[in-house]
């Protein structure tokens, strides 16, 4: 009997769509229950959002001031304790939140973890990428252990939040919580643009953009399209944009309907982050750039000439 516990990801009192993506992955297993666990200082509004997600059986909340920030060392023992209440699976999204947290839970439970699930063949057999997505392996986990996994969010659409009204249950978890880890601050770029990880359209710039000032041209095009902005590692390393915009093996893995790569050569580590995109558009002055091998629509030329023309054509 499969009972899946999904760890809700949230920030500033809002549920992240990665949680509903985990639900879609959980549904592939056809489990008997999909419960969502919300650890927070004030979980009520987050739990209310989670309860609306289709297929969620129950939402569990643990309210505790110690849960004000998602510190893995604090959350993990609580999750391990809840998981032992008859759950067969613990899922978290493979966002930085889940990547930080899930292995700590797995180690406390003494079990292995399957990272970046992109398909569940059955309750204990999964597909996941290795070598920056250059190979896909089929992994079998033992059925007699709790299975901890992170879900590759780009592989799953978010489950709908239709008519469901799952019951919400407040829990008390009595485990000792460490004080050796303290939150100091979160520096978040304020932006009205769509979120990179869930945006339908993304415009990304690379080293070819040339400078921080020049990047304005990328932001402008993105705004015109209502798109989120992304970047290659080279652009981030050069300081053109902050690190949270990096797309790729070691940045964000995304699956927008439209991805525009501008002044990006198409290194394998970058392509890993976009291979689930619906349509890839590449603009590059080098017709031999590897990005054209995967682009659905390619345009060779100087970005500084082509982008203004593109904006014109969009009018």
């Amino acid at each position: 009997m499969a009972r899946i516990l999904i760890i809700a990801e949230h920030l500033n009192g809002k549920l992240n769509s990665s949680t509903a993506r985990c639900v879609t992955c959980a549904r592939e297993i056809k489990p008997d229950a999909i419960d969502v666990l919300v650890l927070s200082e004030a979980p009520d509004s987050i739990a209310a959002e989670a309860a609306k997600i289709e297929s969620v059986s129950k939402v569990l909340t643990v309210a505790n001031p110690a849960n004000a920030h998602a510190l893995a060392a604090v959350c993990a023992p609580q999750i391990a304790a809840v998981a032992k209440n008859g759950y067969s699976h613990v899922f978290a999204p493979s966002t930085t939140f889940g990547k930080d947290l899930a292995p700590r839970v797995a180690a406390l439970l003494g079990v292995a973890q399957v990272s970046d699930v992109m398909k569940a063949n059955d309750a204990h057999t999964f597909q996941r990428p290795i070598y920056a997505g250059n190979a896909i392996v089929t992994v079998h986990a033992p059925a007699d252990q709790i299975l901890v996994a992170t879900v590759r969010t780009a592989s799953y659409p978010a489950a709908g939040n239709g008519a469901n009204a799952a019951p919400i249950e407040a829990m008390n978890v009595s485990v000792e919580l460490p004080t050796h880890t303290r939150f100091v601050e979160l520096a978040q770029a304020k932006s009205d643009r769509p979120d990179l990880q869930s945006a339908r359209r993304v415009v990304s710039g690379g080293r070819g953009v040339g400078s921080k000032e020049n990047f304005a041209i990328i932001f402008q095009l993105a705004d015109k399209l209502g798109a989120a902005v992304g970047a290659s590692r080279a652009a981030v390393d050069a300081g053109y944009v902050p690190s949270d915009l990096q797309v790729g093996q070691t940045g964000k893995i995304i699956a927008p309907e439209l991805y525009m790569a501008i002044g990006i050569s198409g290194a394998i580590q970058h392509l890993t982050g976009i291979k689930d995109a619906g349509t890839i558009v590449a603009i590059n002055k080098d017709g031999e750039a590897p990005i054209f091998e995967v682009a659905d629509i390619g345009l060779v030329g100087d970005l500084f000439k082509l982008i203004p023309e593109l904006e014109q054509a969009l009018n």
């Binding site: 930080d100 100091v184 979160l186």
Partner: peptide, 12 residues
Amino acid sequence: EVDAGLETIEVD
């Protein structure tokens, strides 16, 4: 480096 930006924590 977290998805939301840059988080600072202090650990013993």
